[in-house]
C-alpha cells in the first residue's frame, strides 16, 4: 500500500501495535482504535498528530520493524513532547483509562475495560467479563512458551 494512502486510523493502529507489543490483529480485534483515536484528537490533537507523523516514516508493512527503526523509535520516544503522549497511549491500551493514575482518570467505555491488555498480558481475563467457563479455575496457570 502506498504510504500516503494509509488511513490515519491504520497508522494509529500500527503505532499502537509497536508501542504495546501486541499484534496489529490484536489491536484491530478490540474494535477500539477509532474510539481511542477520537479521544486523543479530542484531548490533544497536536500531540497525537506529531506522534503519528514521527512514526509515519517507518516501514511497518511487514508487521515487523527493522532493528535500526526500533532504535530510531526508542530515540523518538525520549523526546519530551512525544514521550508523554506515547505513555498515555500505552496506558490507554493496557488499562482502558484516560490519564491512568491521575486524579481525573476515567474508564473510556465498558468495552475499553473489557478489552484492556493488562489482563491478557497477565494470562488472565477482566473480572466480570470474558469468563473462562465453569471449573476452569482448576486448570494449571497458562504458560507462555518462547517462540
Amino acid at each position: 500500500m502506498n504510504k500516503s494512502m494509509k488511513t490515519k486510523r491504520l497508522l494509529f493502529e500500527e503505532l499502537s501495535a509497536v508501542l504495546t507489543g501486541f499484534s496489529l490483529a490484536d489491536i484491530q480485534g478490540t474494535g477500539l482504535s477509532s474510539l481511542y483515536l477520537e479521544v486523543f484528537e479530542d484531548k490533544d490533537p497536536d500531540a497525537i498528530n506529531n506522534l503519528l507523523s514521527a512514526f509515519e516514516k517507518f516501514d511497518t508493512e511487514s508487521g515487523k520493524l527493522s532493528d535500526d527503526d526500533l532504535i530510531l523509535i526508542s530515540g523518538a520516544l525520549e523526546d519530551k513532547y512525544l514521550r508523554p503522549i506515547s505513555q498515555q497511549l500505552i496506558l490507554m491500551w493496557y488499562t482502558g483509562q484516560w490519564n491512568f493514575g491521575e486524579p481525573d482518570t476515567y474508564v473510556i467505555s465498558k468495552e475499553a475495560y473489557i478489552e484492556s491488555f493488562s489482563f491478557r498480558a497477565a494470562g488472565s481475563h477482566p473480572a466480570g467479563a470474558k469468563q473462562p467457563g465453569y471449573g476452569t479455575w482448576q486448570f494449571p496457570p497458562q504458560t507462555f512458551l518462547e517462540e
Binding site: 473480572a127 466480570g128 467479563a129 473462562p132 467457563g133 465453569y134 476452569t136 479455575w137
Partner: peptide, 8 residues
C-alpha cells in the same frame, strides 16, 4: 445456571 468463572 452455573458459575462461569467471572471472578467478580
Amino acid at each position: 445456571q452455573r458459575c462461569e468463572g467471572n471472578a467478580a
